[in-house]
């Protein structure tokens, strides 16, 4: 059985050309495309292809990667015109003999395929991505039912790869736009029943470059490698802020979670 499962593994299926956008910051020359021929095996990802180039053809090709299994979110790039994680994209599944690899758009490019993600982290920080409370010191645990956790749990899957900002058409022209990642995270914390920080975040969200700049093209949700659906988060955040105009959003005092006894059975 073992042999059947491994049949074909390690054999070169075909040769694919990787067309990589090269930019060398030291020479200062404008970016150009360089082609590399890579023998492709079954199960080989685009990241494997880039590493093959790095090992055998050109050591100076730069890419950012770490875990190689879609957890760290380091290897986001534009592969054949669409934002993807290089480690999760199999070359054979693309079905093309030419694979065009660009660094993520709407960011600066540090070198070759390495984007400058300062903007992503700056935006993420600006929406205060942590639970905000009004008391100085916590007096106990902040409890939460499983249903309350489900109401925001999907947005905690974000790995901050930054693909959504690259796919977003608003971000392509508005440098200061918060972007799908930060807005979805803002919704994640505001809809958390332990959090009381709506008013603190309001001046960032309810601004010219905030939540109203989204035009719902859905590209962020299309490219998200973890299925976070940031577009949904943004629209729900809008709903929350719009309803806040008519009905003041309830965020005061004690946490809305159940008391300890009803969850644990121990008082």
């Amino acid at each position: 059985m073992q042999e059947v499962a491994l049949k074909g593994f390690g054999e070169v299926v075909k040769t694919v050309t990787l067309r990589i956008r090269r930019y060398d910051p030291e020479s200062g020359e404008p970016p150009k495309y360089v082609e590399y021929k890579v023998p492709v095996q079954m199960g080989m990802t685009v990241l494997d292809g880039i590493l093959y180039v790095k090992e055998h053809l050109d050591h100076t090709v730069s890419a950012r990667y770490s875990c190689r299994m879609g957890i760290c979110g380091s290897c986001g790039m534009i592969i054949n015109g669409r934002e993807r994680l290089a480690c999760q994209t199999q070359i054979l599944e693309l079905g093309k003999d030419l694979v065009k690899i660009d660094p993520m758009g709407n960011y600066g490019t540090v070198k070759d395929l390495v984007p400058d993600l300062t903007k992503l982290f700056r935006n993420h920080e600006s929406v205060k991505p942590y639970v905000i409370r009004d008391e100085e010191e916590p007096k106990g645990e902040y409890l939460q039912t499983p249903e309350q956790r489900e109401s925001y749990a999907m947005f905690t899957d974000c790995i901050m790869c930054g693909l959504c900002l690259s796919a977003c058409p608003t971000n392509a022209t508005d440098e200061l736009y918060l972007g799908p990642q930060a807005l979805a995270q803002a919704f994640r914390y505001i809809s958390d029943n332990r959090d009381l920080g709506l008013n603190e975040r309001l001046n960032v969200l309810d601004s010219k470059h905030g939540v109203w700049r989204c035009h719902f093209s859905g590209a962020c949700s299309d490219v998200c490698p973890k299925g976070v659906d940031p577009a949904l988060g943004i629209q729900l955040l809008r709903q929350l802020l719009t309803s806040n105009v008519f009905v003041k959003f309830e965020q005061k005092g004690a946490p809305k979670g159940p008391d300890r006894k009803s969850v644990t059975g121990v008082s």
């Binding site: 930019y23 910051p25 200062g28 970016p31 660094p103 993520m104 758009g105 709407n106 960011y107 600066g108 490019t109 540090v110 984007p115 400058d116 690259s166 058409p169 392509a172 022209t173 440098e175």
Partner: peptide
């Protein structure tokens, strides 16, 4: 030097 890569 980082260069701009805006899609525009």
């Amino acid at each position: 030097m980082t260069i701009e890569n805006k899609k525009g």
